[in-house]
Amino acid sequence: MLELRLVQGSLLKKVLEAIKELVTDANFDCSATGFSLQAMDSSHVALVALLLRSEGFEHYRCDRNLSMGMNLNNVSKMLRCAGNDDIITLKADDGSDTVTFMFESPNQDKIADFEMKLMDIDSEHLGIPEAEYHAIVKMPSAEFARICKDLSSIGDTVVISVTKEGVKFSTRGDIGNANIVCRQNTTVDKPEEATIIEMQEPVSLTFALRYMNSFTKATPLSNTVTISLSSELPVVVEYKVADMGYIRFYLAPKIED
């Protein structure tokens, strides 16, 4: 028996909008720790890891570990029927091949349940060790989204370089090239507007902008984004999901041929 009640149901709606472009089908795993997902895009270049910790739910019942295969486009269709202020409850019986999404309006005057078929999904689970990163950039998520969008109108790849001067995003294409430098800036009115750069050593890596743009679909979840970089390692782009967890996107770098 599985029953997860999330008062801030809009978080789940935003999570689905954040990942459905990158991944088509995925297994949602439920355990005592929380509700999680790990899935790669079809080309195995990018990966999304989601964790919503059990403490973040108003009610969390998971009698035994359960993996539920879902088509994310179908989940998104279901969740779009929930109001932004609705409380969302996920329910599944042991051995059932369906999951039920229950939507309650805030004043309890409307209760809806949507039952969705589960599917069998063969997915490979990657073991991602905790790593020390050479550079960690924390910046406003809207700023990062704007940079990725702007650069993708010029080129296909972005070089992200972190030095003592700041973080530089560069691209080049047929019509020309572009460089955007963001300096550390902590003298702002609100903490979420700050750009904070923690650098152990300079790092410069190249990534496909198509994936970066896809990651920025998570922007509505958090005012800030954290970009962790190490030489010759995939970048980690992390958005917090309120105080209950995170979405992390991993993207393998490109190398000069």
Binding site: L47, H125, L126, P234, A252, K254, E256, D257
Partner: peptide
């Protein structure tokens, strides 16, 4: 020209 690496070249499967 750039070559795209894949995640499996960095992380093992579980």
């Amino acid at each position: 020209n750039c070559l795209q690496w894949r995640l499996k070249e960095f992380y093992g499967t579980q």
